[in-house]
Each structure stands twice: as structure tokens, then as C-alpha cells.
Amino acid sequence: MSFTPQPIPTPTAPLQAAVRYGAIALAVLSVASAVIAYLALGLPGLWGALIGAALGGAFILLTSVSVLFSARLSPTSLGAVLLGGWIAKMLVAVVVLGVLNGMTFYHRSTLGIVVLAALVIVLGAETYGVVRSRTPYVDSSDDSDGK
């Protein structure tokens, strides 16, 4: 009889699970919303759904990815990366929405609904990934005093 221990997860395992579940949820939402919008509204609905999924999903997923890749940085550097990433995401979102404002090839309501759905669904999937992941808890208190 042999014993094969389970590998110990890394400290970034919850973040990796969050990104994985978020990406899967975004893919499912993108396909489902594109099909539903195309069947209901035609090509403008399809474009609205695809742009909405890309905009909303990227906004949430990029936060998790930036936290994952900067997890080993100091708290100050991590804060700078997150703040800089948030400012960049806001600028990109404002520019994209500003460019799309005068165009008529997409359905505006579909874009708005899918952006909101992407924000909620991807964030929920990321939360599920973090809560579901198992990470070891180690108490580093000194037990040498006999208590």
C-alpha cells in the first residue's frame, strides 16, 4: 500500500481559480447572449451582445489577472498596480463608449444589459472560484512556551 500526498496549493491558487471560473463564465455568457440577441434582434443585437460581453467581462477579469500577477509585490506596489489598472480600464471604457455613441450598427439596450450581466456573472463566478478553492492555513505562533 502506498500513500501519495495531495500537492499543497500555492498561495495564488484562489486567484487562479477566480480567473479560470471568471473566464469560463464570460465565455458562456458571450455565447448565450450572442445567440439570444441575434435571434431576437438580428445583427445589431449580436454586435451589442458581443461588445457588451467584451467590455463588461474584460473590466472584471483584468482586475483578477492584475492581482494574480502582482501578488508577490509589496503592498504599496500592489496598490499602485491596481490603481493604475483601474484608471486605465476606466479610460478605455469611456473611450470605447464615446466612440460607440454615434454609431448605429449595434443595439444599445442589448449592450447595456449584457455589460451589467457580465459584471454580475463574472464577479459571481470569480467569488465562487475563490470560496471553493482550498488553501492550507498555518498558524505561526510560537508554541515553545508550553501553552
Rank of each mutant, 00 (worst) to 15 (best):
V96Y: 05
L26V: 04
A93R: 00
S70A: 10
I60Y: 04
M1W: 13
K89S: 10
S33A: 13
M103C: 02
D145G: 01
L46T: 02
Q6K: 07
R72T: 01
A27K: 12
P11R: 15
R134G: 00
I8Y: 01
A80F: 11
A23V: 06
N101Y: 15
L55Y: 04
R134C: 00
A125C: 03
G102W: 08
M103N: 11
V19P: 03
Y38A: 06
T4C: 04
A125R: 10
A37T: 02
G56D: 04
K89N: 11
G45Y: 13
L119Q: 01
L61N: 04
L73R: 08
S133M: 04
A25L: 03
W86V: 00
Q16D: 04
G42H: 14
N101M: 07
L97D: 01
V35Q: 14
L123P: 00
F69G: 05
V19F: 07
W47L: 15
P11K: 15
G52T: 05
P5H: 09
L29P: 11
T12M: 07
G102N: 08
I8P: 02
G146V: 03
N101L: 09
T135N: 10
T104D: 06
A80C: 05
T76M: 09
A17C: 08
L41D: 00
A93T: 10
L78E: 11
K89L: 09
R134V: 07
S74K: 14
L46R: 06
L68Q: 04
V122C: 03
G84F: 03
L111Y: 15
G124Q: 14
A40G: 02
